Amino acid sequence: MVSWRAGLRLVAMAIWLVGCVTAYYLVAILPGRNPVPPVFLAGIAFIAGVEIEVRGTPPRRAMLLANHVSWMDIPVLAATARSAFVAHDGLQGHPILKRLCEMNRTVFIARSRRHTVADQVAQLREALEVNHVLTLFPEGTTGTGDCLLPVKSSLLSAIDPPPEDHDGPVPIVPVLLAYEDAPDVAWGDQPGPENFIAILSRREPVRVTVHFLPPLAGEELAGRKAMAAAITAHLSDGLNAAGLSKTPALA
């Protein structure tokens, strides 16, 4: 049963969606990235009761590699970094979700077909030219928020070597999402719709600190396995500093 609080938030989200879709098509004729999708996602975070604190400086041009805890990661990173996202192609099977992803210029990748890596590199470069900031979740799935799941180096194939644009190699930036009540708000084994309603039913806000860490440099960029090891180390250190446990590994 949906609580009254979740019901009100769902209504507010529906109204916000209609308004933002209308605005999206009104400004769609303008060149460059449509500014509405990140604003829409930021509004979803606000309506859901997410309170965001930022540590470090959100980059204006970067490939972000973040730990993955919840569906809230998407609106949180859109709100703080105006990021678009890299997602697995399985989402293309959901028409409404697919269209919303496309409006935010999501890059869909086929994780199980290695021969598509060259195409994925081209897609990332094209997306970065328009979006300037893209986020990839290298764990490949959501965790409980109080530890880091194995970083899958195979998911980094499309950024090995880092893609370039007219300004040179795009910075690879680790991002730590530290939720105050991580195990309570994380997806974990909970079905997606159930978790979504549980978040909207909360009386207390969902507090998350977004740590934008220094870009990878030097030997940390020497191949996807080196990048995976560096991301594991930086995010694990961040989890420890935030008072959360770490159980990182490479895959």
Rank of each mutant, 00 (worst) to 15 (best):
I15N: 05
I15P: 01
W16S: 04
W16Q: 03
L17F: 15
L17V: 02
G19S: 09
C20A: 14
C20G: 04
C20Y: 04
V21A: 15
V21P: 00
T22L: 15
T22I: 13
T22F: 13
A23I: 01
Y24N: 09
Y25W: 15
L26P: 00
L26Y: 05
V27L: 13
V27C: 07
I29D: 08
L30A: 13
P31A: 06
G32R: 12
G32C: 03
R33Q: 13
P35I: 06
P35H: 06
V36I: 15
P37W: 07
P37N: 12
V39I: 09
F40I: 01
L41D: 08
G43P: 00
I44A: 14
A45R: 07
F46Q: 10
F46S: 12
I47V: 10
A48Y: 02
A48P: 01
A48F: 06
A48W: 05
A48T: 04
G49E: 11
V50N: 10
V50C: 15
V50G: 11
V50A: 13
V50S: 11
I52E: 14
E53T: 14
E53M: 08
E53N: 13
E53C: 06
R55M: 09
R55G: 07
G56S: 07
T57F: 00
P58E: 07
P58D: 07
P58G: 08
P59E: 07
P59T: 01
P59A: 01
R60Y: 05
R61A: 10
A62M: 04
M63F: 15
L64N: 06
L65V: 07
L65P: 00
A66Y: 06
A66V: 00
A66W: 00
N67C: 05
N67F: 03
N67M: 04
N67S: 05
N67E: 05
H68S: 09
H68Q: 11
V69G: 04
V69D: 02
V69E: 02
V69I: 12
S70I: 01
S70H: 09
W71V: 04
W71D: 11
W71I: 05
M72F: 09
M72W: 14
M72A: 15
I74E: 14
P75V: 03
L77N: 09
L77F: 05
A78F: 04
T80N: 12
T80E: 12
A81C: 11
A81M: 09
A81H: 10
A81I: 01
S83G: 10
S83C: 10
S83A: 15
S83E: 08
A84I: 03
A84Y: 09
A84C: 09
A84D: 13
F85V: 03
F85M: 08
F85Y: 14
V86E: 12
A87F: 06
A87S: 14
H88Y: 08
H88E: 14
D89V: 05
G90W: 10
G90P: 00
